[in-house]
Amino acid sequence: MAARMVPAKRDPIRPAPANPIVISIDGDPVAGVEGQTIAGVVLAGGRLAWRRTSVDGRPRGLFCGIGVCFDCIVTVNGERDVRACQRRAGDGDVVSSQHDELPEAAR
């Protein structure tokens, strides 16, 4: 199982209907609602990891959730190194995961 949105019908806060949006990550469309962060949309869409680390190529996704750790950085509409947990998703955003290989000399 993975992360998911709290179903509106079962949510004790009784949410009003929200505007649907669609973004893409690495070419795959993911549905969300207006006001979610990119990390929120991607996680609730069932994907737990998106970045690959430079040294060991390990998967990373959300960790601190409050903009401190930079583990969740993605490229948004061509802008690199954007913290997915901080940036609100906009309808049509094109998101791609990052894997920054180390230069040969640093290996």
Partner: peptide, 20 residues
């Protein structure tokens, strides 16, 4: 992936209504 800080769980529960 799937290991979070407690603050992340709190932030995503309150600020996103996402269960991690």
């Amino acid at each position: 992936p799937g290991v979070f800080t407690a603050g992340a769980a709190q932030a995503f529960a309150k600020g996103e209504r996402v269960a991690l």
